[in-house]
């Protein structure tokens, strides 16, 4: 299992992600600087969390214009798996790789807490290790995680089984529409999600519920 983590100026959970990928796969992932124009031959590309370019214009907006994102788009179109977490999700929506947008949290504050996620589909390369409808723990840490898309898009996402995770209604931390926490592209090889599975992979971190996402992705390539 070869993986790459894209590092933007202002990424700040890239080390968490590199650690999680290595810890779970046993292979050192490759860190790729945003100025690169091509990607190594990998099975999984991860856009990590953080505040790329300070998120000063809009979250993920400027990172979406980085040279490396062209290569990410091409790989995604070829079916290479791409996982965007938090800022990574925001970048994926800004570049149009995933539909919708992430707005400021409904309560307007940054929120860091454990939430409960329902596995909305296990028919995907990212969620196959979970059972359908399983409810898992996962931390969130973001200021702009309020998922929004128009009704048509939402209906299409649901109709095509492209919602990967939903917050349980009582733990929706940000006002996301239809409690959506993570969505996939039409080929279901790109997943964007606000919660941080990479921070819940060992008992010392308070649980291992986040492992399933990485183990699912690994299983399909192995």
């Amino acid at each position: 299992m070869k993986s790459a983590v894209i590092v933007f100026p202002g990424s700040n959970r890239e080390r968490d992600m590199l650690y999680a990928l290595e810890h779970i796969s046993g292979h050192k992932p490759i860190a790729v600087w945003h100025q690169e124009t091509s990607l190594p031959d990998v099975d999984l590309i991860v856009l990590p969390g953080g505040f790329s370019y300070g998120d000063y214009l809009r979250t993920g907006a400027i990172a979406g214009l980085s040279p490396i994102m062209k290569a990410v788009k091409e790989k995604a179109a070829k079916g290479v798996r791409v996982l965007g977490v938090c800022n990574g999700f925001q970048i994926l929506t800004e570049t149009g790789i995933l539909p919708g947008a992430l707005l400021r949290n409904a309560h307007l504050k940054f929120v860091c807490k454990q939430v409960r996620l329902e596995v909305a589909t296990n028919a995907s390369v990212f969620t196959s290790r979970y059972t359908q409808g399983q409810v898992i723990d996962c931390p969130v840490a973001h200021h702009d995680g309020n998922y929004f898309a128009d009704e048509d898009t939402l209906n299409r996402l649901e109709g095509e089984d492209r919602v990967a995770f939903r917050y349980t209604p009582e733990t929706n931390p940000n006002g996301s529409i239809r409690n959506i926490a993570g969505v996939m592209n039409d080929q279901k090889n790109v997943l964007g999600m606000m919660p941080h599975p990479e921070n819940l992979i060992e008992p010392a971190q308070g649980g291992t519920d986040g492992r399933g996402i990485f183990e699912s992705a690994l299983e399909w390539v192995a």
Binding site: N12, R13, R15, D16, Y19, A20, G49, K109, F110, V111, C112, K113, P139, A141, H196, E198, N199, A204, Q205
Partner: peptide, 14 residues
């Protein structure tokens, strides 16, 4: 207060 602080980043918070 503390839910407004990222207290998990770096993955080492015990």
């Amino acid at each position: 207060v503390w839910e407004q602080y990222d207290n998990l980043i770096q993955g080492n918070t015990i």
